[in-house]
Simulated assay, not measured.
Amino acid sequence: MTSTTITAAAAGTWQLGDRTVNRLGFGTMRLPQRGEALIPDAVPRDRDQAVAVLRRAVELGVNHFDTAAFYFSALRSANELLNRALAPYPDDLVIATKVGPGRDPSGHWLPHATPAQLRGQVEENLRQLGRDHLDVVNLRIVGSDSIAERFGALAELRDAGLVRHLGLSNIQTHHLVEAQAIAPVVCVQNMYGIGASAEQEEVLRVCGEQGVAFVPFYSIAGHGRTAGASPDEGSVVEAVARSRGASTAQVRLAWTLQRGAHVLAIPGTGDVGHLEENVAAGALRLSEGEVRELGLGL
């Protein structure tokens, strides 16, 4: 599927809090390094290449960027790259970040932040991005324990003006109920794509019913997660891609976007060509039969 003249606007828009964003966004996790993300010895990506990708994304109409202070390699951080490439930021640009997990300077993972530590994580994102407030902060969690104390701490930072909107990441449906009793939730960021589990489908459905944006991660990589997508040879995905003259990545993105008007895709890449291909997927409209067939199995 050609990407010559297609922009992120082709995917349509969604109202994220008080901000309007194109539904095809960009995730920065892979930008600071080459190969598998979120490992201590990742090979840094060339800074100029990463900056070029971000600037091309804006040229293509991408105005929703997902990042985190813990996205970094030995020499590059996603926030630093965003700041370098895009500041002063366009008025319509929305940057969503995550807090909760952390990494020490050597890249090793640290325990999840306490409520008291979340303010420091928010302030670190502010410093790295060069902003006086954050558009969206997602509380990233692991497990099924209560999030009330941690989400309450972020709600206080929202009331103080450091954060504009709040979201959640990697949650179960009861977490959304718990958070909404404390402060408005504008988005939920969970793993989702072709082959999603019943639990993942349930979170997407609940968000749609409540008008909460659903922001899937690994929608291309699937269960390959940070290692990347596994081959689609012989699959339904490959058959649909071949018949449509599209890549399998484009089919996976198009299917995900068609799961609801509230779905905001954030595929990431360090390659301009792949970026343009991903953005073009926002114009691919699968038939009802294709959507159903892809949902039934790979």
Rank of each mutant, 00 (worst) to 15 (best):
R164G: 14
G17Q: 07
H133N: 04
M1Q: 10
V279I: 15
A213N: 03
V272P: 06
L16V: 05
A179M: 04
P105V: 02
S235E: 02
G161Q: 00
N170G: 02
D41H: 11
T226Q: 12
L129Q: 06
L176H: 01
L16K: 09
L38M: 15
E199S: 08
A11K: 11
Q128G: 07
L286D: 14
A246H: 11
R131V: 08
S230T: 11
A246G: 13
A8S: 10
V251R: 10
R292Q: 12
G25E: 08
A198Q: 01
A68P: 06
L204D: 00
A249R: 04
N22C: 13
V99I: 09
V58T: 13
S230Q: 13
L129K: 07
H262I: 05
R244N: 03
A179D: 01
V263F: 05
I147Q: 04
I171Y: 00
R45H: 10
G61F: 08
E80H: 08
E123D: 13
L86K: 03
A196W: 03
E276C: 13
L166K: 07
R164H: 12
L24Q: 11
V215A: 03
E201H: 15
V21A: 01
A254P: 14
S3F: 14
L129I: 07
G208W: 00
E277V: 07
F214R: 00
I95K: 05
A116M: 10
P101G: 07
T248L: 03
Q189R: 09
T173A: 05
D145L: 07
V272K: 06
T2E: 05
G234D: 08
V51M: 03
A196V: 09
V251E: 13
V136A: 01
V142Y: 02
Q33S: 15
L284N: 12
H174N: 10
A74M: 02
T97R: 02
D41E: 14
V236W: 02
D271G: 11
A85V: 12
Q189I: 06
S73M: 04
M191K: 12
F70I: 11
G268L: 14
R131F: 09
T97Q: 10
F214W: 01
L82H: 04
P44F: 08
R103N: 01
V263K: 06
G130I: 09
A8R: 05
A57P: 04
V136H: 02
F70V: 10
P267C: 11
R34T: 15
V51N: 03
R242H: 14
G25N: 12
R150H: 12
C207H: 08
A153G: 02
L129C: 08
L82M: 14
I39K: 13
Q172K: 04
G152A: 04
D135A: 11
F70S: 04
D159T: 14
E124T: 08
P90V: 15
D66Y: 09
V279G: 12
E178P: 06
P40W: 10
G167L: 01
A78F: 07
F217W: 15
T28L: 06
N278Y: 11
V251H: 13
E36Q: 15
S247Q: 09
L54D: 05
A181K: 08
D145W: 02
A113D: 09
A148M: 13
L38D: 13
R19Y: 03
N190A: 07
R244M: 14
S219W: 00
I6S: 00
P115F: 02
